[in-house]
């Protein structure tokens, strides 16, 4: 457990609600050329799943937990690292073409 167990389902619902509005507001007024880089950028951000997979692997007490946890960490790390590289390359291309144009 990352935080103590006082996080009730109600606080969880508050977090979910505020996060959902945040995501909506951040994206709501975006030019359409940024749609694909933003999709890639948000793909990177859910790479945070690697932290949950690390928790599952590090606290594993059996062989199944170790094997599936290993798989989860590898997949999550690939999600995060790959998402970063792809987004960075997309945005870099976007920026240079922007400079040439203007």
């Amino acid at each position: 457990m990352i935080i103590d167990s006082s996080m009730t389902w109600l606080i969880a619902l508050y977090i979910f609600m505020l996060a959902a509005f945040t995501g909506y507001e951040v994206i709501s007024r975006v030019p359409s050329i940024l749609h694909t880089p933003l999709m890639s950028g948000s793909n990177f951000i859910h790479g945070i799943v690697v932290v949950g997979a690390l928790h599952a692997l590090l606290t594993a007490t059996g062989l199944f937990g170790q094997v599936v946890g290993f798989l989860g960490v590898a997949l999550g790390a690939a999600n995060a690292a790959g998402g970063y590289v792809v987004t960075d390359r997309m945005l870099a291309m976007f920026k240079t073409s922007d400079r040439k144009g203007g």
Partner: peptide, 23 residues
């Protein structure tokens, strides 16, 4: 997992991604 960072990041992407899909 009771991990707020995963909850926030996941739900932000969940709603931003849904909006992006619609757009």
């Amino acid at each position: 997992l009771q991990n707020p960072a995963l909850m926030i990041a996941g739900m932000v992407v969940g709603s931003a991604g849904t909006l992006l899909t619609a757009l």
